[in-house]
């Protein structure tokens, strides 16, 4: 589904990603872990086309198409989704209207019927149950005045509405208490389908107890230093990140 080859990227001329290789197939759940400032959020943002980053080399194919030929909104409609660590507030734009426009843009791109406000109302009232969100949040301005946890619920609600092929979840657990984390983790699991894939970006392994990855990649200094199975996350929980970095420096792994 996603094939990343020797990807390099920079921000304001400073290299942040220094050669990333990663393959994600349908049905797989991958976790990108690493210390703060390792470039893991950057990887997510580069994939979805954030304007602050410049791709300086390498190639990314999403379902066979060169991702960097596509505008960010086209990538989104093709099935690429990012759940943001800090979702932005947009005063005056109703959450429901925003969700409906996003839904209809994707429906239009896929040749499906668009939903009118009444049809969408029925649709969205089902979806919000998945993230245990109060209906009142639909009528409020997009993320405006939402708590950290409410914003994250709203991100996963958007994922439920758009049903992306590949969802990149950036630090989903930040700002969430344990109960909310479980609710959203369960919601993400329910949304996962055999033809979908997940890329979970996280500093703390806690979220991986609910959303269980088959593949764990440790990113540091803009490179993937270590790859492994679910056991690697547990090892990182116990030992932290330093040993991975040291091991890489002494030439143990690339």
């Amino acid at each position: 589904m996603l094939s990343i080859k020797n990807l390099t990227a920079s921000i304001n001329g400073t290299p942040v990603l220094k050669g990333i290789d990663l393959e994600i197939k349908a049905g797989e759940i991958h976790a990108i872990m690493g210390p703060n400032g390792s470039g893991k959020s950057t990887l997510g943002k580069v994939l979805v086309g954030h304007p602050s980053y410049e791709v300086t080399g390498g190639e990314v194919l999403f379902e066979g198409k060169n991702l960097f030929d596509l505008e960010p909104d086209v990538r989104a409609r093709a099935g690429l989704f990012m759940g943001f660590q800090h979702p932005i507030e947009v005063p005056g734009v109703s959450n429901a209207a925003f969700l409906r426009l996003a839904y209809n843009k994707k429906a239009e791109a896929e040749g499906r019927d668009e939903l009118d406000p009444l049809e969408f109302d029925d649709f969205i009232r089902e979806k919000i149950k998945l993230v245990s969100m109060k209906e009142a949040f639909l009528d409020r301005s997009l993320n405006e005045g939402f708590s950290g946890g409410e914003k994250k619920r709203n991100e996963i609600l958007q994922m439920a509405v758009l049903e992306p092929k590949l969802a990149i979840l950036d630090e989903l657990d930040s700002g969430l208490d344990i109960d909310a984390l479980r609710v959203l983790g369960d919601a993400v699991n329910k949304l996962m389908r055999p033809d979908h894939a997940l890329l979970v970006i996280t500093h703390f392994p806690r979220i991986l107890e609910t959303i269980r990855p088959q593949f764990v990649h440790v990113l540091s200094g803009g490179r993937i230093l270590k790859q492994g199975g679910p056991g690697l996350a547990i090892e990182l929980e116990e030992r932290g990140y330093d040993w991975v970095v040291e091991e890489a420096a002494t030439g143990g792994h690339r």
Binding site: P51, V93, A97
Partner: peptide
């Protein structure tokens, strides 16, 4: 800001419709 506009784009909404929606909200 770029961030607001990008948020809309990441949800599949083209930039011009995003601006229009933000302005109408304003």
């Amino acid at each position: 800001g770029e961030e607001q506009l990008f948020y809309f784009q990441q949800r599949g909404i083209p930039a011009e419709e995003a601006i229009s929606m933000i302005i109408n909200g304003f």
